[in-house]
């Protein structure tokens, strides 16, 4: 562990939080991806407090960026809310089975499956990386019933993008798994949420990341009471983290409308590789 003077330590916490909020708001991820490894590996913060700060950072990313995205009308609140049924249910199931999973030392299997799912999607992402907007698929019965239509004005393309989602049921199944992983491992699983909308429901990348951004806040809030009572939240660390992440997320939300879907996908794919490897390594006990 590093022995840093307090002001430098706080400065590093703030810088890490700003970067985390900035990237998280672009690709629809919470704090678990960047913040937990930086906090534990580089700053020597105990994993319990890093996890608690990560929950706070996920909500800060979500709410900090959301006020801008709602104004820009990129987030599809209907699609997000429909999928939240599965994530909140999954997260409750995850919390309820956590004791059993940990008692039987099964958490490593979940980490490995989660990691492999993410890594397997890199190919899918690269194949789509030449496309600015998804190839339209034929609307199915779920498109009609759940009104999976939307449009937003894309500043990078200078045009209004009309889109529709398909395969709502497949999205729900992925979200159930995403919610379960969140409840069990205490990570926001924003990457799975983006994949559920991008790959399963064929939505434009920006709609997927901003809608995931909305959803991670709700999923994280569902874990807030358990985190609080378990003593995972160290108020001062969580406080500085919240301030940095809010600032970063607000900056990110100003950048997102102006950059292309392709660039967002490139950043997302790089993070997918990083996160997938991280989860597999955790599963094999190489890192904790």
């Amino acid at each position: 562990m590093l022995h840093l003077p307090l002001d430098i330590f706080i400065g590093l916490v703030l810088i890490a939080s700003i970067i985390s909020g900035f990237l998280g708001s672009l690709v629809g991820l919470g704090g678990g991806t960047f913040l937990v490894p930086i906090y534990t590996l580089f700053l020597g913060i105990p994993i319990a407090y890093a996890t608690g700060a990560s929950l706070i950072s996920t909500i800060a990313t979500s709410s900090g960026a959301a006020s801008a995205y709602v104004r820009d009308r990129i987030t599809n609140v209907k699609i997000g809310m429909g999928l939240e049924i599965a994530t909140t249910t999954g997260s409750i199931l995850g919390s309820l089975t956590a004791a059993y999973i940990y008692a039987h030392h099964l958490a490593y299997i979940v980490y490995i499956i989660f990691g492999l799912v993410l890594l397997s999607q890199i190919y899918v992402q690269l194949k789509k990386s030449s496309l600015e907007l998804p190839r339209p698929m034929k609307p199915d019965w779920t498109t009609r019933i759940f009104k999976l239509y939307g449009e937003y004005y894309d500043e990078a393309l200078n045009q209004t993008v009309k889109y529709h989602g398909v395969r709502w049921w497949l999205g729900e199944i992925i979200m159930l798994f995403a919610g379960y992983v969140s409840g069990l491992l205490g990570i926001g699983s924003g990457a799975l949420k983006v994949l559920g909308m991008d790959w399963a429901m064929n939505l434009p990348m920006k709609v997927s990341t901003t809608t995931s951004n909305f959803m991670i806040g709700v999923t994280a809030a569902s874990g807030s009471a358990i985190y609080w009572f378990s003593g995972l939240i160290q108020p001062i660390l969580a406080g500085f983290t919240a301030l940095g992440v809010l600032l970063g997320a607000m900056m990110g939300s100003r950048v997102l409308p102006k950059i292309t879907n392709r660039l967002i996908r490139y950043i997302f794919t790089a993070i997918l590789a990083f996160l997938g490897i991280e989860m597999v390594l955790r599963g094999f006990g190489v890192i904790h």
Partner: peptide, 20 residues
């Protein structure tokens, strides 16, 4: 749908911690 999400949230915040 939104009411179910809200109910799940309340369940997760006020009931689940006591159980777990």
């Amino acid at each position: 749908i939104t009411a179910i999400v809200f109910m799940n949230l309340m369940l997760a915040i006020f009931v689940i911690p006591a159980l777990v």
